[in-house]
Amino acid sequence: MKTPTLNHWLYGIWVALLIMIPADEAYTAEGGVVDTYKNATAPFDENTVDAALSLPIPSVLVTERYQGGRFWVETRKDKMQRFKCRQCHNNKPVKVTRAAEIAHGQIALKHGSESRPLSCYTCHKKDERDFLVTEQGTKIDMDHSYQMCGQCHFRQKKDWVGGAHGKRISYWAGQRVVKNCTGCHDPHSPRFKKRWPVIYSPPLSKSQ
């Protein structure tokens, strides 16, 4: 304590108050936390969380299950600037030259190996532009793009389902809603970009 100028009687109160606090036993964990959680096998009852847990954002039910059952994924269609693609991709012939560049010039594909880069139609369904497509030709809703990514990135998809890749949104309890692959990765250039940190850390002094 920096200012040892307390009056004696106050000191007395301190001591009295201290004595009132019972001896502590909570911090002597036996066996350790690893044993504790390994022994916990009953699923958690979410109803014990008082707070109103609601789906935090627009989401759709994922077509697969994770270890805890059903879960949801954030929607994407409402976040895409160019949806619906059908507005333009309606099978009318386009007469403009360099139309693709004008329409989608900002898209620079940097995805796949150097020798075998992906093409637009690896992922987009050519005759139904509002949808994605798998290599088997199955059409996939834009909100379920994880299915499309997952056919090539099997390991990441499995981790994403389980909870080790990607992230849950807002709540740890209640209905599980996760981010879609494209919520983090730009599908056309999926690598995370270099940028400045949003804050700086001052040196940590020993006394802090």
Partner: peptide, 24 residues
């Protein structure tokens, strides 16, 4: 966290993400 590097949850819930990480 924008990268999903941080996983948080209930250790006593065998179905939680954190338990998935610890196990796998």
């Amino acid at each position: 966290c924008p990268t999903g590097a941080r996983v948080f949850g209930n250790l006593l819930d065998p179905d939680s993400e954190i338990r998935f990480v610890l196990k796998n």
